[in-house]
Every structure is written in C-alpha cells, then in structure tokens.
C-alpha cells in the first residue's frame, strides 16, 4: 500500500489538445492515473496514443492543456519519469553495444562532462539482468532480434529508477519470451509502487495484463478500472464499426 504522504495521483492530465496543422490529433483529453497502477492506452491506428504520451512528456507541444506528474509539472523533476520509445524510432545500426545503450538511461544522473563509472556500469548490468539480457552486454545492437531490442530499451528505463513509466508499444512484434519478460517486469514495477502507462494494441490481453485502461480515439472515450470501462459499448465507440474482433477480447474478460 502507498505511503501516507504519497500523492494519490501519479498522473493528472487536463484538457490536453494537440493539433498538427489545424487537424486535431488529440482533443480535450483528461486522465487521472492513481499511483501504483498499470494502465493501458488502447485505440485504433491514428487515435493519438503515441501523441498522447509524447505530449505528456513534452516531446510535442500541446495546443492546450496541462500535465502534472506526482503533483508537479514534468519539467520540475525529470528523474521521476522514464520513457520507453517505440523500438522502431531509432537506428539499430548505430555503432554501439547493449551496455552502452542501457547506460544512456543514467546520463541525466551522471551530469555534464563526466563519463559513466564502475557503479553506473554495475547498475546497468543489474537492469539487464532484470530483463534476462545480462549475457548480451557486449553485443552490438545491430545483432539483436526485435524482442531483444525491446528488452534493452526496457533495461534503459529500469536503470533510470523512476516513479512513473511511459512505454510506447513494448509488446509490438516481440517473441513469446520477451512478452512474458515484459509482463513480469510490469508486475514487478507495480509491486514496487511504480505507475506504468503502456500504449497497447492487443485488446485480448488488456484484462489479463492491466488494472486500468484508457480508450482513446482522438477524444477520450472512457478511462478507469478495466472491469468498469472495458465494455463492448465503449470498445464499439472507440473502434467504430469494426467490432467483429472485439467479442473475443470481451469473452476473455468475462471468462
């Protein structure tokens, strides 16, 4: 259970609106995420899921809205937030190795003009062990499989030792081993009182993996505990007419 003085809300988003050249991508989105919760953001392609995370993190400029993380603006203390971008957002042919990428998670703490030391290396190796990649520390990143790339990115976020984690499609195109490793990791983070927001595309696994869910399609359709808001009506409203594949997801939930 959270400490007495812990903030009740990990993330508080008000009226978040983002537009690309007059076209709204996110419209007036509110979201409140309690601390210690695993939350999935689901919605069709182009619903603004990635944009939502990027706007919360200040990577895209919102047209309107405010974001508080642990009762503070994000810029006030970046060390409490960790970000796992989509794996396809970087060039994996970059000349570097696995350990080096994980160490990048510590650059904020290491500070200007200094090089990572032995203690940083140790922390990075520990994070790699948590995702089952410790034997890959010296491996060139160009030689990793998709799932291994994903786990390296997760290790980089773990080493940040943040309070709130944002992950963009961590389950996208990964092997079964990696999927299990990520699920275990999410549960471990929750057990340690961390809050995790995950952009997710597989409706079937939402009830199994997550506590809360936000259904997003430019507007927020619904958000809250999975048992309350992950309903056929809400899914239909989020995904429009394409509901044939939804019944399976719901069957899972009701099982």
């Amino acid at each position: 259970m959270p400490h007495v003085d812990a903030p009740s809300l990990a993330i508080e988003v008000r009226d978040l609106t983002v537009a690309y050249r007059d076209k709204p991508v996110l419209w007036d989105v509110d979201l409140e995420v309690p601390a210690g919760v695993l939350l999935a953001i689901v919605g069709p392609n182009g619903a603004g899921k990635t944009t939502f995370i990027k706007a919360v993190l200040g990577l895209v400029d919102p047209a309107a809205g405010s974001v508080l993380i642990l009762d503070q603006p994000y810029r006030a203390d970046r060390s409490r937030v960790a970000y796992v971008p989509q794996r396809g957002s970087v060039d994996w042919d970059f000349p570097t190795n696995v350990l080096d990428v994980v160490l990048m998670g510590l650059y904020g703490r290491i500070g200007w003009f200094r090089r990572p030391g032995a203690n940083h290396r140790e922390a990075a190796l520990k994070a790699l062990a948590q995702v089952g990649m410790e034997s890959f520390a010296d491996r060139q990143i160009s030689q990793l499989s998709g799932g291994q790339q994903q786990r390296v990115f997760l290790a980089r976020a773990l080493v940040q030792d943040a309070e709130v984690y944002f992950m963009d499609e961590p389950f996208q195109g990964v092997d079964a081993t990696t999927e299990r490793a990520i699920v275990e990791l999410l549960r471990d983070l929750r057990a340690r009182g961390k809050t995790v927001v995950v952009v997710h595309h597989d409706l079937q696994t939402v009830p199994e993996y997550f506590d809360e869910v936000m259904l997003l399609n430019v507007r927020r359709i619904a958000a809250g505990p999975v048992s309350e808001v992950f309903s056929e009506d809400n899914l239909r409203e989020t995904y429009g007419g394409r509901v044939a594949f939804l019944s399976a997801a719901l069957a899972r939930k009701n099982a």
């Binding site: 990027k54 993190l57 200040g58 990577l59 810029r75 970046r78 937030v81 960790a82 970000y83 971008p85 957002s89 970087v90 060039d91 970059f94 570097t96 990428v101 990048m104 998670g105 650059y107 904020g108 980089r156 940040q160």
Partner: peptide, 13 residues
Amino acid sequence: LVSFDREFAHTIG
C-alpha cells in the same frame, strides 16, 4: 545520445 535517440535525450532533460 542525441545522435542515437533524440527523443529519449529530450525526456531526460
């Protein structure tokens, strides 16, 4: 870091 992953660099300040 900015050459490898600009957005991540941005998020750590």
